[in-house]
Design a protein around this nucleic acid. Structure first.
Lengths: 140, 140
DNA sequence: CTGTCTAATGCAAATTACTTGCATATGCGT
DNA sequence: ACGCATATGCAAGTAATTTGCATTAGACAG
């Protein structure tokens, strides 16, 4: 609910209208992020939101920094960015295909340090680790 | 040249043939990785390699771990994996769009540590940092 | 709270991205 | 060099994404 307020404010700041399809798409994403565009479109259809509207709003959300595109486990997905979803990284198990979200303060520190070395300012980052998860170890 | 040997060996191990189109595609990738499939296809065309052959071999290269799919600066790309290209991470400047490759030992350490916390084994990883590069700072 | 203006939506058609079938050409083991 | 199995090119097919246009619906003024 609070996220929706942020969402509406983000749109307002860009002088973009808060429409019912946009709110619907945002809710789907809050519930399923990260998700494929196919999933988004399928869910949207249940709410009678057209696929053209999905694509147009994905472009808008991307433009205003609400979502970002990632590849997880070889699949292209769209994910809510830090402010609207939780910030985390992805571990993708190549044995069972499971996707594990995690976070690590020391990783964040190392990322900031690396950027500082480049003389750059960080606005966001994304990490994916591919490997074998704890559950699958010893089985493969 | 040495990379080509590795490439041929990788194919041989999988009992896959070393064909002229495959070698051509590999050379394009060595020269331009990371690149979009559109770029790959455009370059391949110069060598009279058909787009169907491009897609079929992208699938093969992916299957044998030669390349991986990434999103850099919002663009989907394909990149030679560590063994065939250099291992590095990406910094994408959202002001000038420039792509900077970098590497950081402490980052590698932090990544290993994070995976260890999960009880997982790492086989590869990919990081993208989005921000403003040194050159653009003070200008934006 | 209603009218008006502008931008967003749905629908269908168009474009672009990717995949597949099939006849031919080419690696590669003998 | 020969023969077989697989990779290739070409053309057609399917899936993904974008666009044009008539209509609907936010937002803000009155």
């Amino acid at each position: 609910m609070d996220k929706e307020l942020l969402f509406k404010q983000a749109l307002g700041l860009q002088r973009e209208r808060v429409t019912s399809p946009r709110l619907g798409l945002f809710r789907i994403m809050v519930r399923k992020s990260p998700l494929t565009t196919a999933t988004l479109i399928a869910e949207a259809e249940k709410l009678s939101i057209d696929q053209a509207t999905c694509y147009r709003n994905l472009a808008l959300f991307r433009r205003i920094g609400l979502i970002s595109d990632i590849v997880v486990g070889g699949r292209r997905m769209v994910e809510l960015t830090d402010s609207f979803g939780a910030h985390h990284h992805h571990f993708s198990c190549r044995n069972c295909g499971r996707l594990i979200d995690f976070d690590s303060p020391s990783l964040e520190t190392a990322i900031s340090a690396a950027a500082a070395d480049l003389g750059a300012i960080v606005s966001s980052h994304q990490l994916e680790i591919i490997g074998v998860c704890a559950q699958c170890r010893g089985l493969t």
